[in-house]
Amino acid sequence: MTGFEFAADPDRVIHEPARLKIMSVLSAAESADFIYLMGETGLTRGNLSVQLTRLKEAGYIKIAKEFVGNSPRTTASMTPEGKKAFDEYRTYLASLLKATS
């Protein structure tokens, strides 16, 4: 026991602030659309799209496209793997705080 177990690498996919914000939103909802995520994260369309793709590639979120009337709607939702990774990341943050306070 070194007492520095918290120093084990955090999940780099979630560790990035914009992606952490996206995961925080999706952890509180079944799904959220592109406009809502843009408003919450403050990211531009292009940047949000990149971050969502990164999370999708990691298997943490699913992206669905649908039409509401004539308007397209892109929604993102968290996968079970994403939920597990998010919970583990929060546990990591808590242990980090505990070890450094």
Binding site: E30, S31, I35, Y36, G39, R73
Partner: peptide, 15 residues
């Protein structure tokens, strides 16, 4: 909500 809210600040579906 579809007409007013979702077009302005987005859509959130709750479990």
């Amino acid at each position: 909500k579809d007409r007013i809210t979702h077009t302005r600040t987005g859509y959130v579906k709750y479990p």
